[in-house]
Each structure stands twice: as C-alpha cells, then as structure tokens.
C-alpha cells in the first residue's frame, strides 16, 4: 500500500491501528514509514529456496521489532506475516504476529474462538465471540 500510495496511506493505517489498540498502546518502530526496512518476505524470497539468506535479511526487521518492546506485531500482508512470524521464532523474540483483520474484529468483540490462530495466550481467551462454538 505504502509503496503505491506513499506516506499518507501509512498515516491512515496508523489511525486504524491506534483506534483498535488505543493510542497509548501503539509503538512505532524506528525507522518507519517510507524509511522503514523491508522484512524480507516479499519479492518471492519466501519461495526462493534461500532460507538462511532470507533469515539473515530479516535480522534487521526483527531487531527493530524487539527494540520497541511491543507485545504484538501487526503485519499488513501475507508475505510479511509469514516472514515476521518465522523471524519471531528464529531469533527467539516469540512475539505474536497478527493480521489487521483479527485485531479489528477482536476490538469489535466479534472474533470467534476459531479465528484466533495467531493471537498469543494473553488474548486467546479475551472477549471471545460465541465461545460455545470452539472446535475441540
């Protein structure tokens, strides 16, 4: 999005994220916006077979995320989600990486028990919509 539409779209996304989690719970990483680093999931890297290089590429992104001290990382797309999720495990940060849609629905109280694959244990049981429909 930001590549095509520039920093104004990055501001829109910040508005969405802050509205969901609360202004005080949003922590920007450094650098950010157009000056941010790519995570390394894009450009076909995930399917290229160069796994060691891909994880080394992502080291910078992982350090950025860990430096924020944030409990959660929201990823904007699938490539980023898959890559950052792997970085979180590989470098030992173990921060959950979530899709934006999960967080929007969680904040609206409409996130069911089977739509929480990527939430951490601290949020797994929070405000569950129709908990009786959980798959055993």
């Amino acid at each position: 999005m930001r590549k095509s539409f520039g920093d104004p779209i990055a501001e829109d996304l910040r508005f969405v994220v802050k509205s969901i989690v609360g202004e005080e719970n949003f922590i920007d990483m450094t650098p950010n916006r157009s000056n941010n680093y790519c995570c390394g999931g894009g450009g076909g890297f995930l399917q290229s077979g160069y796994k060691d290089e891909r994880l080394e590429y992502g080291r910078l992104k992982d350090e950025q995320i860990q430096a924020t001290g944030a409990d959660y990382c929201i990823a904007g797309c699938h490539n980023c989600h898959a890559q950052i999720h792997e970085l979180s495990e590989h470098y030992g940060g173990h921060y959950p990486v979530v899709h934006l849609w999960s967080m929007i629905c969680l904040s609206l109280g409409i996130l069911g028990p089977n739509e929480r694959e990527y939430l951490g244990d601290d949020l797994k049981e929070v405000n569950v919509f129709h908990p009786e429909t959980a798959l055993m």
Binding site: K3, S34, N35, N36, Y37, C38, G40, G41, G42, G43, G44, F45, S48, Y50, E53, R54, Y57
Partner: peptide, 16 residues
Amino acid sequence: TPWVWMCTMCQRCIYV
C-alpha cells in the same frame, strides 16, 4: 549472481 533473488525490490534504495 543469485543475489538478484535475495533483493526483494522493496525500493528503499530509491527512496534514500
């Protein structure tokens, strides 16, 4: 060079 498959073409280099 296989490096061309390790650059994600993220365009930060153009930005700076």
